[in-house]
Design a protein around this nucleic acid. Structure first.
Length: 200
DNA sequence: GAGATGATTAGCT
DNA sequence: GCTAATCATCTCC
């Protein structure tokens, strides 16, 4: 049921971001299975996107992961506190990535609560990219890991959302990117309680 | 080797 | 709504 390697080789990162809505993301870290279906994504489109780390074809020890063959993870630390999980897509040399911003949890809720230091399940348990990574146990240790592994993977369980249920809009937290900050590269399920920020 | 900064979040007002 | 927390990474010297 895992999405095949070829799924990630699509060079149209924006179309894939839309398609990932409703897919199931799972991790099996330290023997604890956690996961749920994706309700919010953002596309980061290669060398021409000012908001992407890879803008202008920049390659550094951190960003080299984005240039690898699609179908792997890209995990990195932001603000010294939050780790973010991205899916690398397209082919080698094309630094396209999709940031997973929110997940609707279905499995391992108790484990997520422990990781998040929560007593009860609240919507913000997997709301926002930093929260998703923490709840699912994602860390930089699994940077550049293939999504065909048994540690982290994405499944298609036949869940789909219609175009009426999915909205597109500008990305969050990329105001510095000038005109590119306005691109409708963010996709989310309207009204879902796990979606961050504007939600209508 | 030092200085600036960010795909953010939580907690308080 | 506002702001502190907090550090790997990048950019120059």
């Amino acid at each position: 049921m895992k999405l095949p390697e070829s799924y990630y080789h699509n060079p149209d990162v924006v179309a894939l971001s839309r398609d990932l809505i409703g897919k199931y993301l799972f991790t099996n870290i330290d023997g604890e299975l956690t996961g749920g279906y994706i309700v919010e994504t953002e596309a980061y489109a290669g060398v021409n996107d000012k908001a992407a780390h890879s803008y202008g074809g920049k390659v550094t020890p951190r960003t080299q992961t984005m240039y690898m063959q699609g179908g792997i993870s890209y995990v990195y630390l932001c603000y010294g506190i939050h780790e973010m999980f991205n899916v690398v897509v397209s082919g080698e040399g094309h630094p396209h990535a999709i940031l997973i911003r929110a997940v609707h949890p279905t499995d391992g809720l108790d484990v997520m609560m422990l990781r998040r230091n929560m007593e009860i399940v609240k919507p913000n348990i997997t709301k926002g990219p930093g929260s998703v990574a923490k709840a699912l146990g994602i860390s930089r240790k699994i940077n550049a890991m293939t999504l065909q592994s048994d540690v982290i993977w994405i499944e298609d369980r036949g869940l789909t959302f219609s175009n009426e249920e999915v909205a597109a809009g500008p990305r969050i937290g990329v105001d510095y990117a000038g005109n590119d900050a306005l691109l409708p590269y963010r996709f989310y399920v309207k009204g879902n309680i796990y979606v961050s920020k504007p939600n209508k």
